[in-house]
Amino acid sequence: MKMNMMKTSAAALAFVATVMVSGTSFAAGDTPRAPAQNWSFNKLFGSFEPAAAQRGFQVYKEVCSGCHSMSLLSYRHLSQLGFSEDEVKAIAASVEVTAGPNDEGEMFERPGIPADRFKAPFANVQAAAAANNGKAPPDLSLMTKARVGGADYVYGLLVGYEEAPSGVEVPEGGNYNKYFPGHVIAMGPPLSDESVEYTDGTKPTLSQHAKDVTTFMAWAAEPEMEARKRMGVKVLLFLLVLTGMLYAVKRKVWENLH
């Protein structure tokens, strides 16, 4: 019986382990996996670095937002990154949003308010595609969750532009990227050194820009992450105590059986 139990338990563990391995996705084709970066938010109890995320928002606003929407975010969400209420208002008011219809049935432009969603660069997918060689730039709200490799992939992609190796034909309008599945990506290198002028004295290198904007996108994809991890500790500690007590109860109940 004892042997059997051991065998059974081992097999069950193997079952769970296999399920876990087979549950994770596989890298596409021959594209190498982007190397893992040391993200503060990927640690078990990690959090987003607010300064990096704020700089990342600046990079998004000044560079990415020209083509990429972030339609799941509202300006009010930015207060989570440490922007003050007035700063959020100012950021929102810097864009004109279409509202209405008014009493005459006309749509009209008004300055944005914190409750507005991030303004998209194009009116719709078709317009986005038409302006970008037929391929609409994807929305970035969930990018780090929606790609295998998460933040590492996004960072890798941003810094992964290089000369195509000899023998690789890059079609017209395409760019060679080390980490993009299939290597040929429609987006040109979006960032380079000094793409954005930082106000906090951080050195504006390509890798710094990429790190910052990736941090911002990771926050945008999982704004609940810090609260989730904080609550998780409490819940698991509570369950540990309760389970310990339940074990003691079970022992006590069963001890008079033998």
């Binding site: 819940v235 698991l236 389970t243 339940l246 069963w254």
Partner: peptide, 16 residues
């Protein structure tokens, strides 16, 4: 009691 103890263990797994 045995089931409740099992539920405690399971909930830790689940909540993780």
């Amino acid at each position: 009691t045995k089931d409740l103890f099992g539920m405690g263990l399971f909930m830790m797994f689940f909540m993780f």
